[in-house]
Amino acid sequence: MSGPVAGRVVHLSTVHHSWDNRILNKECRALAEAGIDTHLVISADEDRTGHGLSVHAIRRRGRLARLVVSQWEALQWLRRLRPAVLHVHDPELIPLMVLWGRLGRCRIIYDAHEDLVKQIETKPYLRGRQRVLARGAARALVGLADRRCDAVVTVIDEIAQHFSTTRRGRPRPVVVVRNLPWVADFPPVSVRCNDPVAVYTGDISEERGFSRMVKAVEQVPGARLVLAGRSLVPTSRTGSHPEVEMLGLVPPGELPGILARARLGLVLLDRLPNYAHSLPTKLVEYMASGIPFLATDFPYWRQLFEDVDAGVFVDVDDPAAVREALERLLTDPEECSRLGANGRRAVEEHFGFDLDAARLVRLTRQLLG
């Protein structure tokens, strides 16, 4: 097999969709705009180009077929593209990534989007012994990535601490690239002019607060709820809710327009370990748009955002408190405008993706050598 193409980077995922905001619109876009030869191999309907990079389609499959057929398809793309740096986004691809790093003689980056071991606790289909086995497999995969990767990218410092900054006695980069919005992508919203609409963006599931949001909105006269994201809730359980509009999965470029219709953004997640120490991207996107948030009162989130005074934290285990906070905000456009302006200013000063993009570009160029 021929050697790698000098200067070429391939981002790889068989799990995420081709519109994934972090992978496509942030990381790959940042590299392409910096002039790096960037390719994305990912589940998609068709090959395409955009943001100055090439997207190569892998057919979307179920979990079991993905572990075999999709990985074989990914391997074929790697043989054609021959990257000098391979940047992988799925834990299940870690063995393939390590194998290709040896066969393809390229540098490899593992992108830890979440704390994989804690994430096991959020999987409702894993119970009892299955969960124990899955937790052990997760630790083994993370350990393999830690031993074999040339660099690790994570979203928060707490996850970065799980990875060693040395490898074989030499420094090994562990870089935090926060999942923040490009400020320029989110024009500020005139909250005062908006109807009493609450919005939620992202995967829709029970642990992410689907029923909690619906019930709260139904109890506030005149309120409406807009949900934009992939629904993981069975159709039989979504029911008929006149106050709720479900838009389905939308490309990242459409999110600012959806937020522009809202007076408030929701992040009412369950108290699960994987959420408690996460950087809530949607919350920062709400702030970037200039709309306030109503969010779960995780101590870590309070530490990050309470002093910004851009929204309200609430005990999600208290339905009455959720409803009261929602009603108070939706019926007070002046307060929403004040909180939203604080959030927009904080994103412009501290929570924009521009600095993190530069950090990723430096790392990639270092590995390209």
Score class of each variant (00 low, 15 high):
Arg167Gly: 10
Arg60Cys: 06
Val316Ala: 06
Val233Asn: 02
Leu99Ala: 14
Val41Gln: 04
Thr235Asp: 14
Ile291Arg: 01
Ala341Met: 15
Ile94Cys: 08
Thr38Trp: 03
Pro299Trp: 15
Pro124Glu: 03
Arg102Ile: 13
Arg8Gln: 12
Leu81Ser: 03
Leu255Trp: 04
Thr38Leu: 04
Gln119Pro: 00
Asn179Ile: 11
Glu349Tyr: 09
Val214Leu: 05
Ala134Pro: 03
Pro187Val: 05
Arg61Ile: 04
Met287Pro: 00
Asn21Ile: 09
Ser70Asn: 15
Leu279His: 04
Arg61Tyr: 11
Gly311Trp: 10
Glu348Phe: 14
Gly340Asp: 05
Phe186Gly: 05
Leu86Glu: 01
Asp45Lys: 04
Val220Gly: 00
Val197Asp: 02
Val347Met: 14
Pro4Val: 05
His277Asp: 07
Ile42Asp: 01
Val98Trp: 12
Arg105Asn: 10
Leu272Tyr: 09
Arg168Gly: 14
Val347Tyr: 14
Asp37Trp: 01
Pro124Tyr: 11
Arg172Leu: 09
Leu40Gly: 08
Ala223Ile: 06
Leu268Cys: 05
Val308Tyr: 14
Pro242Phe: 12
Ala74Leu: 02
Gln130Met: 13
Arg66Met: 05
Lys282Arg: 15
Leu264His: 00
Ile291Ser: 03
Val175Leu: 01
Val347Ser: 12
Ala84His: 03
Ala325Val: 02
Leu24Lys: 11
Asn21Met: 09
Ser337Gln: 11
Asp354Cys: 00
Ala30Gln: 01
Glu245Gly: 01
Phe351Thr: 00
Pro188Met: 06
Cys106Asn: 10
Thr122Asp: 11
Asn274Ser: 13
Tyr286His: 13
Gly253Arg: 11
Ile58Thr: 02
Ala30Val: 02
Ala184Met: 05
Pro234Phe: 10
Val10Asn: 02
Ala151Ser: 03
Ser164Trp: 07
Ala320Glu: 13
Ala358Val: 14
Cys149Arg: 00
Phe351Gly: 03
Pro234Ile: 09
Leu294Trp: 07
Asp37Cys: 02
Val176Arg: 12
Val347Gln: 13
His162Trp: 04
Gly128Val: 02
Glu327Lys: 05
Val5Arg: 13
Asp146Ile: 01
His39Val: 05
Asp157Cys: 06
Ala65Asn: 14
Gln76Arg: 15
Lys282Glu: 14
Asp115Ile: 03
Pro83Lys: 00
Ala65Trp: 15
Glu114Cys: 07
Ala145Pro: 00
Val233Arg: 01
Ala112Pro: 03
Pro4Gly: 10
Val153Phe: 05
Ala295Asp: 01
Val183Trp: 08
Arg8Lys: 13
Val214Pro: 00
Asp307Ala: 15
Thr238Gln: 14
Ser164Tyr: 08
Val153Leu: 06
Val312Ser: 06
Thr154Leu: 02
Thr235Val: 13
Ala134Glu: 12
Arg127Ser: 14
Tyr300Glu: 14
Glu285Ala: 04
His241Glu: 05
Ala346Pro: 03
Asn21Gln: 12
Gly352Tyr: 11
Glu335Thr: 12
Arg59Ile: 07
Pro273Ser: 07
Asp356Asn: 12
Ile109Asp: 01
Leu96Tyr: 05
Arg60Ile: 02
Ser164Gly: 12
Val322Tyr: 09
Gly239Asn: 09
Lys282Met: 12
Arg102His: 12
